[in-house]
């Protein structure tokens, strides 16, 4: 019996993606703690391993050895299934992300759509977990998360639509392919398509923060208001999986920003393009995400909706109109 080589390739990629997602989740926690520490003029983790590099391992072991309590009165099915439902779409998103010209698990023609579709499932898992855990704080958090995601999906997708209009494709590899050859070709500086492109990048970035529930939009967790929001009742690794999914989502969001706006694996000076440039850009964006978290206070829920409906959505529509007008004219 022979196995199709494509299947083997896909399997290898899947394992690689899961490892990548898990490693990222673990080491982004380390990065976050280190970065927060230095921003606050302290060291951060330092005891476990050199520079605290083994800290994620220790944390993981700690989380895994904890008892998985299912509190009385919860909906056991929803409660158990929710972390998985949050984690799987996060991993699925990686399938079609091109890290370089060849390093892509499955180059879908509708890759862009697939990533955003998977990203939206994430909120469903949060909602189920929050509702299932029979906690008032969690329910408040779930209500917030859902309307937050609805509100931020719109400006995000509208900006992406304007990009698709410029690129004429939803294939991520092709979108990057059009931006190759130096930073002046990148979409963020594509003033010929729309003079508002840097603003569009900002909008995308802000929406990405909101979609991944990162500070200052961490309405779901909001520890000073809702204790831990949707995760309040989750013990041990149940919480750990939510945590990993959050970081996996950040990686996806930053990858998408890199692909759509920053030319993916392209070198800014047109030399040696490759996966290293992709990772460099992506990790810089992640660094920024963490940097933002440790700088700002949290917005309120209505402040967040105001921002979306009153500022981001109008501007993204202006950008869309401008792009279509420019495309028509030139």
């Amino acid at each position: 019996m022979s196995v199709h080589p494509e299947v083997i390739r896909l399997l290898i990629f899947l394992v690689g993606i899961i490892a990548f997602a898990a490693l990222n989740a673990a080491y982004l926690v380390w990065l976050e703690r280190k970065e927060a520490g230095h921003i606050q003029r302290r060291i951060g983790p330092k005891e476990v391993g050199p520079f605290g590099l083994l800290q994620p391992l220790a944390d993981g072991i700690k989380l895994m050895t904890k008892q998985l309590i299912v509190p009385a009165g919860v909906d056991p099915v929803l409660f158990r299934i929710a972390p998985i439902l949050v984690m799987i779409p996060a991993i699925m998103g990686f399938v079609t992300i091109p890290f370089s010209e060849t390093l892509v698990a499955r180059n879908l023609d509708i890759g862009l759509l697939a990533v955003f579709a998977f990203a939206s499932v994430n909120v469903l898992g949060l909602l189920m977990g929050a509702w299932g855990s029979r906690n008032k704080y969690a329910v408040i958090s779930a209500a917030r998360v859902v309307s937050q995601n609805v509100a931020y999906e719109i400006p995000m997708l509208v900006t992406v639509v304007s990009l698709v209009m410029v690129s004429h494709t939803m294939n991520l590899t092709k979108i990057v392919g059009q931006q190759l050859g130096g930073f002046w070709h990148w979409n963020i500086f594509n003033f010929a398509a729309s003079p508002l492109m840097p603003v569009a990048f900002l909008i995308f970035f802000v929406c990405m923060l909101a979609e991944t529930n990162r500070a200052p939009f961490d309405m779901a967790e909001a520890e000073s208001e809702l204790i831990a929001g949707a995760f309040t009742e989750y013990p041990g690794m149940g919480f750990g999986v939510f945590f990993m999914a959050e970081y996996a989502n950040i990686v996806i969001g930053c990858s998408m920003a890199t692909i759509l706006f920053l030319g993916g694996w392209d070198c800014p000076f047109g030399l040696y393009p490759g996966v290293h440039w992709f990772l460099l850009k992506m990790y810089f964006l992640i660094f920024t995400v963490i940097w933002i978290r440790w700088t700002y206070p949290r917005t309120t829920f209505y402040g967040l909706l105001n921002l979306s409906w009153k500022i981001l959505i109008p501007i993204s529509f202006v950008n869309l109109l401008l792009t279509s007008a420019m495309l028509k004219v030139f």
Partner: peptide, 13 residues
């Protein structure tokens, strides 16, 4: 107070 509002860094400063 800023910690109540979700900003952690000013507390340490």
């Amino acid at each position: 107070f800023v910690l109540d509002l979700g900003g952690f860094t000013p507390l340490l400063y």
